[in-house]
Protein backbone atom coordinates (compact mmCIF):
# COMPACT_ATOMS: atom_id res chain seq x y z
CA UNK A 1 0.00 0.00 0.00
CA UNK A 2 1.53 3.31 -1.00
CA UNK A 3 1.88 6.10 1.54
CA UNK A 4 -0.76 8.82 1.28
CA UNK A 5 0.07 12.50 1.41
CA UNK A 6 -2.38 13.89 3.90
CA UNK A 7 -3.41 17.25 5.22
CA UNK A 8 -1.04 19.99 6.36
CA UNK A 9 -0.55 19.87 10.14
CA UNK A 10 1.03 22.16 12.73
CA UNK A 11 2.66 21.15 16.02
CA UNK A 12 0.15 20.13 18.65
CA UNK A 13 -2.45 18.71 16.26
CA UNK A 14 -3.68 15.24 16.99
CA UNK A 15 -2.84 12.69 14.29
CA UNK A 16 -4.16 9.38 15.54
CA UNK A 17 -4.33 6.93 18.39
CA UNK A 18 -1.48 4.60 19.39
CA UNK A 19 -3.87 1.64 19.14
CA UNK A 20 -3.99 2.06 15.40
CA UNK A 21 -0.70 3.71 14.46
CA UNK A 22 2.89 3.97 15.61
CA UNK A 23 4.75 7.26 16.03
CA UNK A 24 7.35 8.19 13.42
CA UNK A 25 9.52 11.16 12.56
CA UNK A 26 8.21 14.53 13.72
CA UNK A 27 5.59 13.17 16.14
CA UNK A 28 5.24 12.51 19.84
CA UNK A 29 2.94 10.41 22.00
CA UNK A 30 0.87 11.80 24.83
CA UNK A 31 -1.94 10.05 26.71
CA UNK A 32 -2.41 7.33 24.09
CA UNK A 33 -2.58 9.74 21.15
CA UNK A 34 -0.04 10.74 18.56
CA UNK A 35 0.51 14.47 18.06
CA UNK A 36 2.58 16.37 15.50
CA UNK A 37 5.71 18.21 16.56
CA UNK A 38 6.63 19.75 13.20
CA UNK A 39 4.89 21.83 10.52
CA UNK A 40 4.38 19.56 7.52
CA UNK A 41 2.16 17.09 5.74
CA UNK A 42 0.76 14.05 7.48
CA UNK A 43 2.17 10.90 5.98
CA UNK A 44 1.12 7.31 6.74
CA UNK A 45 3.57 4.55 5.88
CA UNK A 46 2.49 0.93 6.03
CA UNK A 47 4.88 -1.48 7.60
CA UNK A 48 4.78 -5.21 7.16
CA UNK A 49 3.77 -6.97 10.36
CA UNK A 50 3.52 -3.75 12.36
CA UNK A 51 1.08 -0.90 12.83
CA UNK A 52 1.27 1.74 10.10
CA UNK A 53 3.62 4.59 10.99
CA UNK A 54 2.58 8.24 11.00
CA UNK A 55 5.29 10.74 10.19
CA UNK A 56 5.50 14.33 9.11
CA UNK A 57 6.94 15.35 5.75
CA UNK A 58 8.38 18.82 5.90
CA UNK A 59 9.85 21.24 3.43
CA UNK A 60 12.62 22.09 5.89
CA UNK A 61 16.03 20.63 6.22
CA UNK A 62 15.81 18.83 9.55
CA UNK A 63 18.02 20.20 12.29
CA UNK A 64 21.34 18.47 12.26
CA UNK A 65 23.33 17.79 15.36
CA UNK A 66 26.35 15.50 15.66
CA UNK A 67 25.00 12.30 17.19
CA UNK A 68 26.94 9.22 18.22
CA UNK A 69 27.84 7.05 15.23
CA UNK A 70 27.53 9.74 12.57
CA UNK A 71 30.43 10.32 10.19
CA UNK A 72 31.37 13.99 10.03
CA UNK A 73 33.74 16.11 8.00
CA UNK A 74 35.95 18.34 10.12
CA UNK A 75 38.76 20.81 9.66
CA UNK A 76 41.79 20.56 11.93
CA UNK A 77 42.33 23.73 13.97
CA UNK A 78 45.29 22.89 16.15
CA UNK A 79 47.40 19.90 17.05
CA UNK A 80 48.99 19.11 20.35
CA UNK A 81 50.78 15.95 21.59
CA UNK A 82 47.68 14.58 23.33
CA UNK A 83 44.80 15.55 21.07
CA UNK A 84 43.87 17.79 18.20
CA UNK A 85 40.99 20.24 18.01
CA UNK A 86 38.77 20.25 14.96
CA UNK A 87 35.82 22.22 13.65
CA UNK A 88 32.93 20.03 12.48
CA UNK A 89 31.63 21.55 9.25
CA UNK A 90 29.50 18.78 7.70
CA UNK A 91 27.43 15.97 9.13
CA UNK A 92 27.18 13.16 6.59
CA UNK A 93 26.60 14.98 3.33
CA UNK A 94 24.81 18.01 4.85
CA UNK A 95 26.91 21.11 5.39
CA UNK A 96 26.22 22.90 8.65
CA UNK A 97 25.22 26.54 8.89
CA UNK A 98 27.22 26.89 12.06
CA UNK A 99 30.15 24.65 12.98
CA UNK A 100 30.63 22.67 16.18
CA UNK A 101 33.88 22.04 17.97
CA UNK A 102 35.34 18.56 18.20
CA UNK A 103 38.38 16.82 19.67
CA UNK A 104 40.26 13.80 18.38
CA UNK A 105 42.28 12.27 21.18
CA UNK A 106 45.58 10.52 20.57
CA UNK A 107 44.18 7.09 21.45
CA UNK A 108 41.28 7.47 19.00
CA UNK A 109 43.34 8.09 15.89
CA UNK A 110 44.22 4.51 15.01
CA UNK A 111 42.70 1.16 15.84
CA UNK A 112 46.06 -0.56 16.28
CA UNK A 113 49.31 0.47 18.05
CA UNK A 114 47.53 3.30 19.82
CA UNK A 115 50.43 4.19 22.11
CA UNK A 116 52.93 4.57 19.26
CA UNK A 117 51.03 7.37 17.58
CA UNK A 118 52.83 10.66 16.91
CA UNK A 119 50.19 13.37 16.53
CA UNK A 120 52.26 15.52 14.20
CA UNK A 121 52.57 12.64 11.74
CA UNK A 122 48.81 12.17 11.57
CA UNK A 123 47.21 15.59 11.26
CA UNK A 124 48.32 19.13 10.59
CA UNK A 125 46.26 22.32 10.98
CA UNK A 126 44.17 23.00 7.88
CA UNK A 127 43.60 19.34 6.96
CA UNK A 128 40.09 18.10 6.23
CA UNK A 129 39.31 14.81 7.96
CA UNK A 130 36.47 12.31 8.01
CA UNK A 131 35.76 11.19 11.56
CA UNK A 132 33.09 9.40 13.53
CA UNK A 133 31.39 10.88 16.59
CA UNK A 134 32.03 8.62 19.58
CA UNK A 135 30.75 10.77 22.42
CA UNK A 136 28.95 14.01 23.24
CA UNK A 137 32.15 14.86 25.07
CA UNK A 138 32.49 17.83 27.38
CA UNK A 139 30.69 21.18 27.20
CA UNK A 140 33.29 22.56 24.84
CA UNK A 141 33.62 19.83 22.19
CA UNK A 142 32.43 16.52 20.81
CA UNK A 143 34.80 13.53 20.87
CA UNK A 144 35.63 12.08 17.47
CA UNK A 145 37.55 9.06 16.29
CA UNK A 146 39.38 8.16 13.08
CA UNK A 147 40.12 4.59 14.12
CA UNK A 148 38.72 2.96 10.99
CA UNK A 149 40.13 2.41 7.53
CA UNK A 150 37.72 4.75 5.80
CA UNK A 151 38.29 7.60 8.29
CA UNK A 152 41.18 10.05 8.40
CA UNK A 153 42.61 12.85 6.26
CA UNK A 154 40.80 13.35 2.96
CA UNK A 155 42.35 16.62 1.90
CA UNK A 156 45.62 18.27 2.92
CA UNK A 157 47.90 20.93 1.54
CA UNK A 158 51.66 20.48 1.50
CA UNK A 159 54.06 22.96 3.08
CA UNK A 160 54.46 24.43 -0.43
CA UNK A 161 50.70 25.06 -0.52
CA UNK A 162 49.56 22.48 -3.07
CA UNK A 163 46.86 19.84 -2.48
CA UNK A 164 48.55 16.51 -1.88
CA UNK A 165 47.85 13.09 -3.37
CA UNK A 166 47.62 10.07 -1.02
CA UNK A 167 50.09 7.31 -1.78
CA UNK A 168 49.60 4.95 1.14
CA UNK A 169 47.77 4.58 4.49
CA UNK A 170 50.27 6.90 6.13
CA UNK A 171 51.76 9.05 3.36
CA UNK A 172 50.72 11.84 1.05
CA UNK A 173 52.82 13.40 -1.71
CA UNK A 174 52.90 16.91 -3.08
CA UNK A 175 52.54 16.79 -6.90
CA UNK A 176 54.80 19.81 -7.49
CA UNK A 177 57.72 19.32 -5.13
CA UNK A 178 57.32 15.49 -4.91
CA UNK A 179 57.97 15.75 -1.19
CA UNK A 180 56.26 13.08 0.96
CA UNK A 181 54.47 14.09 4.15
CA UNK A 182 53.06 11.79 6.84
CA UNK A 183 49.34 11.74 7.57
CA UNK A 184 46.70 9.25 8.77
CA UNK A 185 45.03 8.88 5.40
CA UNK A 186 41.39 7.88 4.89
CA UNK A 187 41.05 4.76 2.76
CA UNK A 188 38.29 6.08 0.54
CA UNK A 189 37.15 3.57 -2.08
CA UNK A 190 38.36 5.73 -4.99
CA UNK A 191 41.92 5.62 -3.73
CA UNK A 192 42.07 2.07 -2.40
CA UNK A 193 40.71 0.57 -5.62
CA UNK A 194 43.25 2.20 -7.95
Amino acid sequence: MAAEVGNPVIPGQRLGSIDQFSAGLGTYVRQRHIYASLVGYKDIISQAGQLPKIQIKTGNVSCNLPTIGKVVTAKVLNVNPRFCRVLIICIGTTPLKEPFKGTIRKEDIRATEKDKVDMYNCFKPGDAVLAEVISLGDPRSYYLSTAKNELGVIFAKSTAGHPMVPISWTEMQCPHTEKIELRKVAGIKYWTDS
Binding site: I10, P11, G12, Y28, S37, L38, V39, N60, S62, C63
Partner: peptide, 11 residues
Protein backbone atom coordinates in the same frame (compact mmCIF):
# COMPACT_ATOMS: atom_id res chain seq x y z
CA UNK B 1 10.13 28.18 16.18
CA UNK B 2 7.47 26.31 14.21
CA UNK B 3 8.88 27.75 10.99
CA UNK B 4 12.40 26.67 11.89
CA UNK B 5 11.79 22.94 11.92
CA UNK B 6 12.78 22.58 15.57
CA UNK B 7 10.46 20.01 17.12
CA UNK B 8 7.93 21.57 19.48
CA UNK B 9 5.01 20.15 21.44
CA UNK B 10 2.59 22.92 20.57
CA UNK B 11 2.44 26.51 19.31
Amino acid sequence: LADSGIEIFDV
